[in-house]
Design a binder for these strands. Structure first.
Lengths: 194, 194, 194, 194
DNA sequence: AATGAATGAGTATTCATTCAT
DNA sequence: AATGAATGAATACTCATTCAT
C-alpha cells in the first residue's frame, strides 16, 4: 500500500537536487545522501540517472496537472477560471520547482556572471519594449497603464504564440501565424485601447 | 581588419554545435572539426569551453539586440512597432538559434521520449485552457476566436508576467502582482470581449 | 585494523613507479595497474597525483626516521652511533628509494646519454680532487690514504656544509661560513695528518 | 667567429628559466620570449627541448670545470688548494646555478608545502645527529666544536661516500665500503679528537 | 533489500613541435 | 634566418554504474 517509502525518499531528494543544481551538476552520490540511502539503492529503483530524472519530471508534471484541474475545476464561471489560472502561475513560479526550471535550468551549470548578464540583457529588452508602450500612451493610442507590465504581457503572448506555432508542420505554419498575429494584435490594441 | 578569421570560424561552429547538442554533449573536438581547425587552436582564442560558450551566447544576444533595435526603429508609429516586434519573434524562433534554446536546450541531453512526453503534456495543458476559452465563447463572454490561439496568448502573457514579477524583491512583489494580474485580465477580457 | 589495504597497495605501487620513472613519467594508469586497482580507485584515496606523491614521500621519510632513530638508539656509545649512522647511509642508498632520488630523480626524464655524461663529469671532478690529495700525500702533508676516498669525504663534507649554510639568513651567513670552513679544514687536516 | 649571438641568447634564457622552474615547468614559449626570439627560432638551433636542456647543462658544467681548474690552479700548495675548493663550493651554491639544482630541482614542480616539510625534516635529522655530536663533546670524546657544523661535515662525507660507492660494481663494493667507512671514521675521530 | 568500494569509459586541456610565410 | 599560428598526441581526473557482501 505504501508505494515503497524508499522510492519516494529518492524521488523527493532528486527533485530538490535537480532543481538546485541541474541535471549534470547534481551527483548521484549527493542524491543518495540527501535521500538517506546508499548509492546502490537508487539503482534498485531506477535504471539510470536519466530514468530517475524523467520519472521525477513526469511526477511533478502530473502533480501540477492535478492541482490545475482541481483548483480551476472549483471555479464556476469563465472569468474566474482564467483568473485562477493566472494566479496559479504565480504560485507555481514562486514554488521554484516548476518543470521548465527543472528541465531547462542547467543554468547552474554556468557562472553567476553569465546568468547576471543574461538577466540584465532581458531587462534591457523589456525596457526597450516598455519604451514603445510609453510612446503609445503619450501618443494617445492606448490607456495610461504601467508600461513595463503591458510589455511583459504582450511579449509573453507573442513569445508562447510564436514558439508554439513554429513547432507546427510547414503547411499549417503560415495560416496559423497570420491568424495568431492578428488575434494577438486585436487583443492587445482593443485591450489596451481607450 | 578581418577580426581574426579563425576566431570567427570557431565561434560559428560552436554556435551550431551548442545549438544542436547543448553545452555538455557538444565536444570540443567536434567543434574544432566543424570549424576546420585543430583542437588546440580553440584554446589559443578561448580559455575554456565555458568561455567559448559564454562568448558565443553574448555574441548572439548582441546580434539580436542590433536586429531588434534596427528593424523596429525602421517602423514609424506605435502599432507598427509592436506588430514588427511580434513578427520578429516568429523569425527568431524559426531560426532555431535564439538564446533560450541555446542556454536551456540541454534538451538534447535527454531522450526524444521525454521531450515527446513533455510536448504532449504541454499540448494537453494548452488544450485544457483552450477548453476554458471555448466555454467563454459558448457562454457569450468573448468573441468567437480560435480558442487555442487565445489560450496561447493568455498563457504566455500570464507566464512571463509571473516569471518576471516572481524575481522581484519581496516588498514590491505583492503590489506588482496585483497590478499585473489586473492589467492582464483587463487586456484579455476587453481584448477578447464582444 | 588493517589501515585500508587498498590504500597501502596504491602507496606501494606509486613508490615503485615514482622511484623508477620520476614524477612526470609515472602515469596514474600505470600506478593503478601496478597496484592492481582501477584508475578511479586511486582518486578515492588521494585527491590528485600530487597528493599521492607527497603522501608517499612523507611516508618514506617517516619510515627512515623511525629506522634511523631505532637503529642508532640501539648503539650505546658515541663512536658506535656515528659508525652506525654511516653504515645506514650505505644501506639506504643501496635500497634505491631514499628520498633524494625520489624527489629529485627526474633523472629518468632524461636520456641515459646525459646521465652518463654527468656521471663521467663528476668522475673527472672527483679525479681532479683526488689528484690534489695525491699531491698532499706525495708532499708529505697527509698520510698515505686512498686519495679518491679522501676526496669523496672532503667534497661531501664541503658540499653539505655549503649547501646548508647558503640557505641561512644573510646576517648569519658570513660567520657560519667562516666557522664552518675552519672546522672543515681542521677536521680534514688533523684527520688526514700524519 | 661570434658563435651565433642568437644561440647564446637562447642558451642564457633557458638557463635562467630551467633554474627557476625546472625542466617540466619551463615552457618553450617563455624561453623564446625571455631570449627575445620567436618560438620557431629555438628549433633552428636545437632539435628539441631536451637537446636544449642537455646543451645548457653541459655548457654550465664545462664553465664550472674551467673555473675550478683555473682558480685552484692558481693556488700553490696542497692546503691552499683544498681550502680554495671549499670556498668555491660556497660561491657556486650561492650563485644558484650549480648543476645539481638544474638537473634535479624539479622542486618547483611541487608545492612550497612539501618543500617546507622536507626542509623541516632534514633540519630534524641534522639536529638528531648534532645531538650525537653533543654527546661526544660532553663525554669528552671530541673537542668542543659547533655540533651542528660537525654533523653537517660528517653527514656530507658519509653521504657522498656511500652514494659514490653504491654505484660501483658488486665485487668492488664490499672492499670499497669497508675502506671508505674506516677512512671516514679515522678522519672524523682524529680530526675532532682532543 | 541495501550498501559503498571499486571501476573505467569518456573528455577538457596542455604544450612541444611544425611549416607556410 | 626568423616567425608564430596552428596542431594533436598525450594524460589527469570525473562520476554513473556495478556487484560482492
Amino acid at each position: 500500500m505504501q508505494e515503497s517509502n524508499t522510492r519516494q525518499k529518492i524521488l523527493l531528494a532528486s527533485r530538490m537536487l535537480f532543481a538546485e543544481k541541474g541535471f549534470h551538476k547534481a551527483k548521484m552520490e549527493e542524491i543518495a545522501e540527501a535521500a538517506g540511502v546508499g548509492k546502490g539503492t537508487i539503482y534498485d529503483y531506477f535504471k539510470s540517472k536519466k530514468e530517475l530524472f524523467e520519472t521525477m519530471i513526469k511526477d511533478i508534471a502530473n502533480e501540477f496537472k492535478s492541482v490545475f484541474i482541481e483548483k480551476i475545476g472549483e471555479e464556476r464561471d469563465f472569468e474566474s477560471k482564467l483568473k485562477k489560472l493566472a494566479e496559479l502561475k504565480f504560485e507555481i513560479n514562486k514554488s521554484h520547482i516548476y518543470i521548465e526550471s527543472l528541465v531547462f535550468k542547467n543554468l547552474s551549470s554556468f557562472d553567476e556572471e553569465l546568468l547576471e548578464w543574461l538577466k540584465d540583457f532581458r531587462e534591457k529588452m523589456i525596457g526597450f519594449i516598455a519604451d514603445i508602450m510609453c510612446e503609445g500612451i503619450k501618443g494617445g493610442h492606448i490607456k495610461d497603464v504601467n508600461p513595463k507590465l503591458a510589455a511583459l504581457i504582450y511579449l509573453g503572448g507573442a513569445h508562447l504564440l510564436s514558439h508554439y506555432i513554429c513547432e507546427q508542420e510547414k503547411d499549417e505554419y503560415e495560416s496559423m501565424k497570420n491568424e495568431g498575429l492578428e488575434l494577438l494584435h486585436e487583443i492587445t490594441f482593443r485591450g489596451l485601447g481607450k
